[in-house]
Amino acid sequence: MNLTQTNPNFFKSIFNGRNAVIAIPYIWLLLLFLLPFIYVLKISFAETIYARPPYSSLLIWGDSWLPSIKASFDNYLFLFSDSLYIKAYLSSLKIAFISTILTLIIGYSIAYSVARAPNRWRGILLMLVILPFWTSFLIRVYAWIGILKTEGLLNLALMSIGIIEKPLMIMNTDLAVYIGIIYSYLPFMILPLYANLEKMDMSLLEAAADLGCRPFKAFWTVTIPLSIPGIMAGCFLVFIPVMGEFVIPDLLGGSETLMIGKVLWTEFFYNRDWPVASAVAILLLAILVVPIMLYQRSQEKAIS
């Protein structure tokens, strides 16, 4: 009976304190992941003051026995009044969207090729994909500075071959940011795609060919539709974190590269405006909450 095999009931008896076991990681995440958001929300309604901590309290204990609530929407109004913030959100959306598409195209061809490689090569190729995924993000972004900067390796190489005469200005532009994002997030795209493509039944393509479908058409009508779960997972894994990316625009982008992660960082570390930084975070979270939930749903489905 399949019904009984997945029935988790007897596991109740495995841990006598079943609820205690659930509670350990649950409470940890509640306290250190969920609770912090409540503070961000709270502080986003506070006012900046010169004090430690640099924000006002929402509850004012006055003469009456009930505290009065002094919440201000000023921070949010501020975000909408200064075009910088709106532009930064829109620019982040644009950069995240375009780089997700580009990463998908490059990642798909690599994942597809690894999945179709001869068996004995596949393990080592997969390993080569995973390796950069483990290597420090910061270091990988840093590696591109030496290549892309005006007197960098790329320009030196191109000029010595004679393709260009004047160095290309790539560093500190949006182009450098795109290169950095694609480079850093490529493994996140390849892994779910590979996991999906590797499982795909090759006889489906043979069946398509047998029924008179050309390989290219079979790719579009069989392979691509079947790999949609992998595509979705990969795109979520790239799009969502890129929306809040800080390191790449900070190190590779120029002054005109606007991304909301960098704005948040600046508000917090340089302007010391915690309430505005919180409002920026809350708004970013509001944009991302739907994609994050979709991602969670797709992952749960994939596991079960």
Partner: peptide
Amino acid sequence: PSGCGKTTLLRMLAGFEK
């Protein structure tokens, strides 16, 4: 036949099903 409850009965004897 499968799904007739025989395995469930066995698992109740073993104690895996309440």
